[in-house]
Amino acid sequence: MAPTPPDDHASDRRNLDWYVDRGMRWIVTVGGVSAIVFIIGIFAFVTREGFPFLFDGFEAGEFFGSPAWRPTSEPNPTYGALALIAGTASVTGLAVLSAVPFSLGAAIYIAEFATGRTREVLKVLVELLAAIPSVVWGFIGLSMMNPLIIAIFDVPVGLNVLNAGLILGLMAAPIMTTIAEDALKAVPDAYREAGEAMGATRWQVTMRVVLPAAKNGLMAAVLLGVGRGFGETMAVLMASGHSINLPTSPFDSVRALTATIAAELGETAVGSEHYQALFTLGMLLFAVTFSINLAADLFVRGVRRG
């Protein structure tokens, strides 16, 4: 009987490894591809549901130019999305304005100044803040911010741009902080050391070296925060007042695109014009958030100016 080749066992094991390798690779590939398939599928679905409206009832002038969103008015429903767009834009804009200084400040403190325990505790707190469900934020807007705004500013209602914008700012801040902190962390320590060795204080190093070096990542942090604000539904629905308005002050109630879809879709007949119009709103949201995320991604990859 011929002696067993010494590497027989080894090649057996290689086979097992090989199968495991192939299997895992297959699973991972399916995972990756399915993500793409789902995205395209969702996009196709939204588009298909909204498409007939784009060709039949759609008037771009009315959709983008008129604030009159009256889908249930008989016999002449109108589908002006301007007020909804303005609602979303004003709330998101205020959210960004209020969240950016806090988030950048927190990120700079955590990444550049806090040490040891303080830093760890702060990071956990920021993550906890990110984990609060949006309906809880909406609840805070309704039951705490609302009376507070009425009392402080002496206005009849406290459910308005200010309320929703601040709530949304609080919701976006943890994401912005975390991403901005990552961007600052990614700046090589050799830069800080070089700056300090030349006699710069920590603050000077932060302002003159670290922030410029991290600017793409910081921009991405802000954009992803904006994206978060744009897509948020429940909290905005609860805190914004949900009334159709072209806002002229932070104390006007508004209605957001997302909230409109959430509130109305359940009450429309599938395939009706109203139903299709809501899907068109969805396409608009999808396009905007997609562009924002794409822009953030390009910033992270370090697209240069000009």
């Binding site: 050799a190 830069y191 070089a194 070296v209 410029p212 070096a213």
Partner: peptide
């Protein structure tokens, strides 16, 4: 420094 570290 040991590794050249010009600022970005």
């Amino acid at each position: 420094f040991q590794r050249p570290n010009p600022l970005p």
